[in-house]
Amino acid sequence: MDKKGILLVNLGSPKSTAVNDVKEYLDEFLMDERVIDYRWFFRALLVQGIILKTRPAKSAEAYKTVWTDEGSPLIVITEKIRKKLQKLVDVPVEIGMRYAQPSIEAGIQKLVDQGVSEIVLFPLYPQYAMSTTETVIEKAEEVRKKKFPKVKINYIQPFYNRDIYINCLAESIKEKLPENFDVLQFSYHGVPERHIYKTDPTKTCNLNDCCSRDNNPSHQFCYRHQCYKTTEAVIAKIGLPKEKTIVSFQSRLGKDKWIEPYTDETLETIPKKGVKNLAIVCPAFVSDCLETLEEISVEGKEQFQHAGGENFHYIPCLNDEDRWIEVVKILCEEKLNDFYLV
């Protein structure tokens, strides 16, 4: 029988906090046509002609605030997940990053070197988006066809509404909620509105009321819908009233219209509405990274308190919690079993 293996794929990180390393990383990341979806010429003009002139130095300073002795938090945490998962499964487990190193190609090569010919690839994103799940699958297929044509890959699909994930996330949040909080804010990574339409082959999404409509054909491709469904399921599991929760979207880039409401604007307005004690969680991420450790727990806290808020409590991602590793194991084993059914 063909030997099987698991590849865990996350976003990626610069090699170091040096400006040149950050610039190299941002170049690869932002030049991905599924991240900034302009034609190549205009994308290059924006990224290499404008953004990379100033952003790397600023981002390098931000990375310095979250960097650990072991390196990038995202990669360190992903490696911890790999090690814990490896103890629970009897097939090889490796990691790869969509951008920078260790690359998806390097991860596949490590598995192939161990005799693996059938791989379960796990994009570590709960919700589907063009700039996350889709670009990982496209890159992996490109690498497979070019370098590993005999390798078979099964992809784990978004798990935003799977009971095992919802139970895990809800338990984690509930344990970390402060005793006194006015609102629990769910801050998801944002995407441009046009991405929602581009990823909808059914052409039934209108970004108005269809997210709340039952069984709309676009739901399996709609990032915004999936974020709201994750939130609804989690607050139902925790037992929170809807009026004590907020959904927002962070990390927007440029002047294009992104899905709303925006996290930064929300943090600046809710203290005026009486929210003084805020808890905030970022369920688009399973591993803490720059967007959670710096953008939310540092910048977001400053925005909230500057606007009149008092207590700001950031709830960490699932990271390498044992209950999350168990979810990863179950999802991987489902796809491993699919190979046996072929």
Rank of each mutant, 00 (worst) to 15 (best):
E334K: 14
S103R: 10
I108G: 01
P126I: 03
R98C: 08
K301Y: 05
E118P: 01
D27M: 10
L26N: 08
W258N: 07
F29K: 12
V47P: 05
V234F: 12
E302T: 14
V112L: 02
E79Q: 12
R162L: 11
Y25G: 13
L169A: 06
R323A: 06
G115W: 09
I81P: 00
R194H: 13
N337Y: 14
E79I: 09
E70L: 09
I330N: 07
Y188G: 01
P123Q: 13
G71D: 06
V89P: 09
V281Q: 08
M31C: 11
N216G: 15
K150W: 02
D27C: 14
A284M: 05
T54W: 13
V93L: 00
Q48E: 13
T65V: 03
T133R: 02
I196V: 13
P201H: 05
C317H: 03
Y188C: 01
E70K: 14
K64V: 00
N215G: 15
I164V: 08
N277C: 03
P126W: 05
F249V: 11
S103L: 12
Q114M: 04
S72N: 03
Q157A: 09
L169M: 12
A129P: 04
D182P: 01
P102F: 01
P241Y: 06
Y38W: 13
K255C: 15
D338V: 08
S131W: 10
L278R: 06
L111Y: 09
I104G: 06
K257S: 03
K145G: 09
V286W: 11
V22A: 06
S59N: 12
L336F: 14
D69A: 07
E294W: 05
F181I: 04
Q127E: 11
I238L: 15
Q48H: 04
A18R: 13
F249W: 00
D32A: 06
S16T: 12
D200R: 03
V91T: 01
L88G: 04
D264V: 08
Y340T: 12
F159V: 04
L88Q: 14
T263N: 12
G308T: 08
I246R: 15
T133N: 13
I173E: 03
A140Q: 01
S13P: 13
P126A: 11
C211K: 05
V112P: 00
T135E: 04
Y314H: 00
L124M: 15
K257M: 05
C289Y: 00
V342E: 08
V275L: 07
S172F: 04
E268F: 07
F41A: 14
H306F: 10
E33M: 09
Y160S: 02
Y38P: 08
L11A: 06
Y125V: 11
R194C: 03
F304D: 05
E265C: 12
I330W: 08
R213D: 12
P56Q: 06
I36C: 02
N337L: 14
